[in-house]
Amino acid sequence: MITVQNVHKWFGDLHVLKGVSLQVNKGDALVVIGPSGSGKSTLLRCINLLVQPDEGDVIIDGVKVNDPRIRPEWVRQQVGMVFQSFNLFTHLNALENVMIGLRKVKRMDRAGAEQMARFELERVGLADKADAYPAQLSGGQQQRVAIARALALNPKAVLFDEPTSALDPEFIREVLDVMTKLAEEGMTMVVVTHEMGFAHNVADRVLFMADGVVVEEGTPDEVFDRPQKERTQAFVGKILG
């Protein structure tokens, strides 16, 4: 479903991604872990072209998407994204946040878009919050609306960029539950997270990145319980502490 081949990215002189490759099969969940500054967020942004890779290829469903002939807007409709700080549109209420992509990008009529948006809010358990503005919602609720917004476009895959890192502890569970349900329903997901419980239970594969390279990849058991590389052992030791 998603193939990343030997992707490089420079920001000025900073070599952020140094030849990263990965593969996610349809319906799988890949969890990416690694210290801050290791290039995890940049890697996710290269997949939906919020960041343009300098070298290498990103292939989604058999289409090489970092090709000048492919419109990045089209790619981003295929691959949804959920951000660390939610990034809900502050001037729109929850329903409108979910609807706007359907209306403006998919060009659906109002009634159809509203029906679909209400369904997506229902899926994340927020049908009763349709009229609330982001500032009136808790962090956990905002993040669930953000997930509904990404799902509304019916993407082939969803990218999660540390979706629970900005949340107060009491709201983490509700977001992880939504994500777990999504994985069980067969959504293809790439998740940057440090939630080890989630990674253990939900991930099909875990990938450990450091300094812009993939250090180690394997099943959750392999990476967390029997890491082969020294750097992985050190990092896993710290976070499982």
């Binding site: 939906n48 919020l50 990045p72 807007e73 089209w74 981003r76 409709q77 949804g80 994204m81 951000f83 990034n87 809900l88 549109f89 502050t90 706007i100 992509g101 403006k104 990008v105 953000a146 917004r149 990404a150 476009l153």
Partner: peptide, 10 residues
Amino acid sequence: QVEAAKSIGM
């Protein structure tokens, strides 16, 4: 906000 709007294909 701009990045989120781009991410839904605007």
